[in-house]
Amino acid sequence: MISVKNLRHVYRTANGERLALDGINLEIADGEFLAVIGTNGSGKSTLAKHFNALLKPTAGKVYVDGLDTAAEENLWRVREKVGMVFQNPDNEIVAAIVEDDVAFGPENLGIAPEEIRRRVDLALETVGMTGYRNFSPSKLSGGQKQRIAIAGAVAMRTKIIVFDEPTAMLDPQGRREVLATIKKLHAQGLTAVLITHFMEEAAAAERVAVMAAGKILKVGVPREIFSDVAGMKRLGLDVPAAAELAERLRRRGFKLPEGILTAKELAAILKGK
């Protein structure tokens, strides 16, 4: 479990200070799938870096399973619990062969070779890349590379993985692959935190946190968050196409129930009209 209490983060720059996080309170339960959305500069990525102690709070606390991330002696135990996957897989892949890349993290933990073998095999299987184990990562598509980066995190056996815009650089097919992989990992028990600009992806999570100007404005189930079409637009965010279309039809006088999120739901309701 991650627990964030009154977290503030200030970046020091040449021109003075910039407040990036301003009093964040958030709990992420074990096994949860949480999406974090917000405009560029709202503090999403800064928050993500606090989850595995890449940053330390300027004020306030972040606890991972009760471990204070600000305490130097907790650093490695926190990172054994929380893995990260970033936007650009090219910046994360280090080895010339896929399976060497996935093994890189566990090797650094000093784990026995047979155990590494087991972990790598299982991680590649989980992300559906077993067939590519001996490939050079440079031969893979963006979505495949990102799945290798995810396998690297999976092989570390962290109970939580924070995905910081993992699909921003991918084509639609690659985005589908990566989202399906995250859903699968979550179904297997992983705690997943997904930072994204794609509202369709956020809609796949169990809870959505909306950030603006360093604060969490609201947290709720996707249905609740995305039914406020006008509010989301005001924040500079979007809603899934089905939610927006439903809202437009409501404005035209159609009586549609609140909380329509997917094409299937919209279809079922329109069929009854």
Binding site: S141, D171, P172, Q173, G174, R176, E200, P240, A241, A242, L245, A263, K264, L266, A267, A268, L270, K271
Partner: peptide
């Protein structure tokens, strides 16, 4: 080509499949 139609078009195709 590994592409998908825009979300709106996907939505309309879905409505179509649902019998609208």
């Amino acid at each position: 080509a590994g592409l998908l139609p825009p979300p709106v078009t996907q939505l309309m195709l879905e409505l179509n499949r649902a019998g609208l």
